[in-house]
């Protein structure tokens, strides 16, 4: 994928990021857990998840973080650098549901061309994730 990277000057506080719906399948949840090397049984073994009081396998935190970071760089482009992620976790992501990621630019700081994006990932039960992603963007020409 080759998309134009946003420049610091192009971005304004309040700008909305393109919404990203993520279909939550068992395959995604297990693939995310395995790709992040997180073999905690509740993320790939339905029986273990049920024993922990859940109805099915549920998404691990690394996958949530990975999706949040993808959401931001899909928008910002290849020359963005993510410098930090801070998230609060809410309702679990379970197979059969959809998580929709939405976000907007919350702050800009000329020192280092830093931008803070507020992100929410919502599923049928409420907010799965809320938080902020900090990144730097290249200066305009």
């Amino acid at each position: 994928m080759s998309i134009e990277t946003l420049r610091y000057q192009d971005v304004n506080v309040g700008d909305a990021l393109p919404e990203l719906p993520i279909a939550l399948t068992s395959s995604l949840i297990v693939a995310g857990a395995v790709a992040s090397q997180d073999y905690t049984p509740v993320h790939h073994d339905k029986e273990a998840a049920e024993a922990a009081g859940m109805q099915d396998v549920f998404m691990n935190i690394l996958t949530t973080n990975g999706l949040v970071s993808r959401f931001v760089t899909d928008w910002a482009g290849i020359d963005a650098r993510i410098t930090g992620v801070s998230i609060k976790l809410g309702t679990p992501n379970l197979p059969g549901d959809t998580m929709t990621l939405t976000g907007a630019v919350a702050e800009k700081d000329e020192t280092g061309n830093a931008v803070t994006v507020e992100v929410t990932g919502k599923n049928a039960w409420g907010n799965h994730v809320t938080g902020t992603v900090k990144l730097t963007l290249p200066a305009g020409d």
Partner: peptide
Amino acid sequence: AMGDACGAYTDAAEAAASVHGELVAPPT
């Protein structure tokens, strides 16, 4: 797994032409 198509992670040529200069891992 994440559906992340950012070239900085998986496309050596795009990564080389970017601010990263070479392939990098997703920070998360």
